[in-house]
Design a protein around this nucleic acid. Sequence first.
DNA 1: CGTAAAATTGATCTGTCTCAACGTGGGTGG
DNA 2: CCACCCACGTTGAGACAGATCAATTTTACG
Lengths: 235, 235
Amino acid sequence: METLIRKLESFGSLTDDDKLAIRSIEAQERIVVARKDIIVEGDDPSYVHLITSGLACRYKLIEDAKRQIVAYLLPGDFCDLHVFILNAMDHSIGAISGCTVVDIPRSSILDLLEQPRLSRALLMATLVDEATLREWITNIGQRRADERIAHLYCELYARMKAVGLANGGSFELPITQTELGDTVGLSTVHVNRSLQSLREQGLIELHRGSLQIPDIIRLKTMSGFKSNYLHLADN
Amino acid sequence: METLIRKLESFGSLTDDDKLAIRSIEAQERIVVARKDIIVEGDDPSYVHLITSGLACRYKLIEDAKRQIVAYLLPGDFCDLHVFILNAMDHSIGAISGCTVVDIPRSSILDLLEQPRLSRALLMATLVDEATLREWITNIGQRRADERIAHLYCELYARMKAVGLANGGSFELPITQTELGDTVGLSTVHVNRSLQSLREQGLIELHRGSLQIPDIIRLKTMSGFKSNYLHLADN
DNA sequence: CGTAAAATTGATCTGTCTCAACGTGGGTGG
DNA sequence: CCACCCACGTTGAGACAGATCAATTTTACG
């Protein structure tokens, strides 16, 4: 739950009461193996799911064959705060790396929403998600292959840093090239070649699921990344 | 304000009190000429803006040259319910056709949110917006040019019908081919050719800003459109 | 009517996809 | 501890969707 607190605090300070309310949630923690689904369309909506460690993604399938990843979920992110209202998942959540997930009963969430500061922070998190989706549309719609990937990397770096998972210019990112392609709307082959180009330009270094960004300014410039939409305190 | 009521009712019934609360909002109405901006990044956030007639779009500019449209706004849609929390627009809203817009003071919105049914309906509208953004990402990321356009048309048709602006299979859609391209991530020339293809196949008919869909089932099938993400009562 | 915006057309170029093969490294069972 | 295996990454060649450039026609509108 500390990751959640950390995230919400990046949107504005919380009182000790607020933190206590979060820490006192009774919730089951479970472990999800890498590449397994955490939630599938039509799962029991009586629990809300929070990622506490690992990396997950939100995705849609079309025609059983093509897949589009529409979001990455980091520790502290909710999978389905909206199921609350909508009662139906129109997509699934899959674990990229091994994840720990807590299943929180709806009632506990309702309790949290009683605290004005918390409900505001949660609403803010939802709005940032929305702004991120708009940014992704722009990314896929307007940028070239290498720029798209670079932009995604800048975003993930900023978010990882915000939850304390980046040290220096590097962080763990065990994303497959196929998954990258499903994220930015490119074929695996072309992702591979674009990554090579980024590496040759010295913009990124990748070794075994770990991404190193030697010069973040340069990566931001070439991809047109502006972090304002994430509404993070620093950076 | 009747369009707003109509829209919110498509998410669940409202009481007479709810409707009264909406009708009694004191708000300035203003007219915006076609192709003019309604809100620009960094505008005064003390008012929230509601479209009451006409068609508008939400867009982002990158490098001053490229533009991505990330949403269409129909009568009954709010432009910026989120500015409330985030205090900063990270994009602009432009009128496609001539529009009427009401500027609602923040305080009136806060009053509305007091009514549980209304606040739930407004939250639901936000979540539908989010689901729509995910669908757009999938559309641009995974589909071919003609499918993208067809999918967009299916969505707009469903939404227009929900606010009573479609009769039979046709509705007013004064969108330029350039704007279409900025929406689905294609060049103007290619949009033109894709439209010709759709017309030749008898899937659509366009004359002077009016779109006619002779066989909606066929258009939905070819574009993979499933309306569930819009969470509309009918259709 | 005249003019500017929008739509259309043709020709050419290129980014990205597809197919198909091959390399590689880390995990697993014998 | 080795050998195999399988998922993942890499490479090459050819095809094609879509971009770009540059006119030209049509439409909307004052």
